[in-house]
Structures are given as structure tokens and as C-alpha cells.
Nucleic acid binder design. Structure first.
Length: 320
DNA sequence: TCTGGTACGCTCTACGACAC
DNA sequence: GTGTCGTAGAGCGTACCAGA
């Protein structure tokens, strides 16, 4: 069985100081307490650790062996505990963050990089994935928080969000878009439902939830069967397929801001305002955020606000 | 929840050994 | 003789646990 840790700590100081009295001073206890504790450790280990000589103690080979075992552990523990104290004064440690794939690739890496320029003691673990996976990881304590794309939230089962504090961060504009070439050849300004239903579509996932949501929002009705030219499982592939003139896809406009700005991609508008989608910060409801988390989230808001080229494509929620 | 027994760790004190 | 270092034992406070 493992000896009492307090006695191992006591032994560590006695060995390091080669003195019972010295260890007692280090540990702020009486010399007698150290002497007795040492004797009990020797009794537990059934091995003498020191030879008592006049005005001192001499470690036995067993003591040297034990010290070599205990030393790295004690020193690492002391170092980690000092880091705990330091983390209360400035950001430090590993921050584990979840994010939707595209959002993470485009924005989070930039935010991480600029944060590390200011706080090199902080490193990151970035988990990219879908809402359900990321929320489960937050719930299990595997992520400190996640950014969650609660797309068409009214369709999703939100009962699982009870355990979380959800704070809107970004409002993004969701558009139906195609390449300008496809638009000029196939659409030519005819945005009627009848005409749109004759075109080719790029589905994000087989359930076509986002595409159907777009039709429901703009035409107040479910779209009948769409002509799906491609089904993929990520928005990046939808944008790539748009670039290849394969048809129309529903995307967040800021994710294709370069192509839209250059005129390579064109949005299909109706007389209804565009759909807006909220990306939220999600963390456990009762969690007390660390200093590192607080400073990072302030930095995140500042960094996002500073991304000038994206400002026409999403709205940043005010920081609470 | 309260109470009493037990174990443990601590301080206090006494004491031995020995160098200066 | 004094100071320093160590051990031993008594007594006290506290934590823990079982039982009422």
C-alpha cells in the first residue's frame, strides 16, 4: 500500500536538508513531529531510511532510492501548483474549444494565433464537428466551451440544451447561392418558385434540412422533390461545388465572402429578408469560467470585430 | 443529527549525546 | 556549561466512523 503522502513529503525535506530540524523549519512543524513521522515511515516501509549519528543523520541506500522515486513527483507537483497560482494572475494552460468545421477553420485559428502572440503560455485544443458531438463533449468536460451553429434551431431537438448557458455571438446571413456563370445561364433574374424548382441543388447532408428550410422561409411552403446534383457532409464542399457551377446551395454568406466580393458567386434573393443563423457560445450552465477563458472570450469578440473584410457578411452580438 | 470511541498528528517537555 | 541535534512519552485537538 502507498505510504501516507504527508510522510513522503516529510521524508523529501529531511533527505534534501539532511536534517530533521531543518525539515521541521521548512514544513513549519516541530522537530519532534518530523522525527516521529520519519520513524513511522520507516516502520511502514520496514526499512531504515537514515542512520542517526551525533548532530545529524546519514541516508541509507534505501533512502537514496526512495528519494529518487519521490523527487520528480514532488517537484512536478510543486511546479504545477505554482502554475495554478500563476493562472489566477494571467492566462495560462490549455484551452479546449469546440467549433463548427468551417467557422473553426476560417476564424478560430486566426483568433488562436493572435491570442498566443499576447499569451504564449496558453495552448489550444480545437475540436471541429457537429453540434451534437460538441455539446456532448462539453457535457462530459472534454471541452471548456464550444461555438455551436444552431442552424434552423426550431427544427432541432433543443431539450438537451437545458444543461448549458447559451450566449449568441454572431448572426450570420444564410443565402441560396450559385456561381455567377450558372446564374446567367440558368436563372437570368427569374426567382419564382416555379422556375427555381427546375434547377440543380447541392444538398448539405441527405436530409436536405437547410435547403428545405430556405424554401419554407422564402415561399412559406415545403419544397417538393428537388433535383439534387450533389450531396455532401460539409459546407466547404457545397461552396466548392458552387464554384464548379454544379448548382445552387444554401451557405452562410461570410464563408464565401471572397467569391461574392469578386462577383464569382451570386445570391438568389426573394422579397423576403435573408435567413439569419446564430452561432452561439455554449458552456455548462453552472461553470465558473477561468481567467484564461474570460480573457480569451474578450479577445475573441475584439478579434471578430476587427475582421473588416467580413463586417458586411455577419453581425457581431454585443458582448455581455 | 448527535454522541461516544478510536486513531492520528501535533506540541510540549524531558532527556541523552557530543562539540565547542 | 552551553548550544545543537536527535529520541521518547504525555497530553491535546481533530477527523472519522459506527450506532442510537
Amino acid at each position: 500500500m502507498l505510504p501516507d503522502f504527508n510522510r513522503l513529503k516529510l521524508f523529501y525535506h529531511v533527505y534534501a536538508r539532511r536534517s530533521v530540524a531543518g525539515a521541521a523549519r521548512d514544513l513549519h512543524v516541530t522537530q519532534s513531529a518530523v522525527s516521529q513521522g520519519l520513524a513511522k515511515l520507516e516502520e511502514e516501509l520496514e526499512t531504515p531510511l537514515f542512520t542517526r549519528v551525533h548532530k545529524g543523520i546519514v541516508p541509507t541506500p534505501a533512502a537514496e532510492s526512495l528519494f529518487n522515486m519521490v523527487k520528480p513527483f514532488v517537484e512536478e507537483l510543486e511546479s504545477e501548483l505554482r502554475s495554478f497560482a500563476a493562472s489566477k494572475k494571467q492566462p495560462w494552460g490549455v484551452l479546449r474549444v469546440g467549433s463548427p468545421r468551417m467557422f473553426g477553420k476560417i476564424y478560430m485559428l486566426r483568433v488562436f494565433a493572435s491570442f498566443r502572440e499576447k499569451y504564449p503560455e496558453v495552448s489550444f485544443v480545437l475540436e471541429l464537428g457537429g453540434q451534437e458531438k460538441l455539446l456532448n463533449m462539453v457535457r462530459a468536460g472534454d471541452l471548456d466551451f464550444t461555438f455551436s451553429d444552431i442552424f434552423f434551431a426550431e427544427k432541432a431537438d433543443l431539450s438537451g440544451l437545458r444543461d448549458f448557458a447559451v450566449e449568441p455571438v454572431i448572426e450570420e446571413e444564410v443565402i441560396l447561392a450559385c456561381s455567377t456563370k450558372y446564374y446567367e445561364e440558368r436563372i437570368r433574374g427569374d426567382h419564382s418558385l416555379k422556375h427555381l424548382l427546375t434547377l440543380d441543388y447541392l444538398a448539405f447532408r441527405p436530409d436536405q434540412l437547410i435547403l428545405r428550410g430556405w424554401f419554407k422561409h422564402h415561399f412559406k411552403r415545403q419544397a417538393p422533390r428537388l433535383n439534387i446534383s450533389l450531396t455532401v457532409d460539409n459546407i466547404q464542399a457545397v461552396i466548392a461545388a458552387i464554384d464548379e457551377h454544379m448548382g445552387l446551395g444554401v451557405i452562410a454568406s461570410h464563408l464565401a465572402w471572397e467569391q461574392i466580393s469578386r462577383g464569382d458567386i451570386t445570391a438568389v434573393h426573394t422579397n423576403k429578408p435573408p435567413i439569419s443563423n446564430t452561432i452561439s457560445l455554449v458552456q455548462l450552465a453552472n461553470k465558473v469560467p477561468s481567467l484564461t477563458e474570460k480573457v480569451f472570450l474578450r479577445h475573441f469578440h475584439k478579434s471578430m470585430a476587427a475582421m473588416e473584410m467580413h463586417k458586411d457578411f455577419f453581425k457581431l452580438w454585443p458582448q455581455p
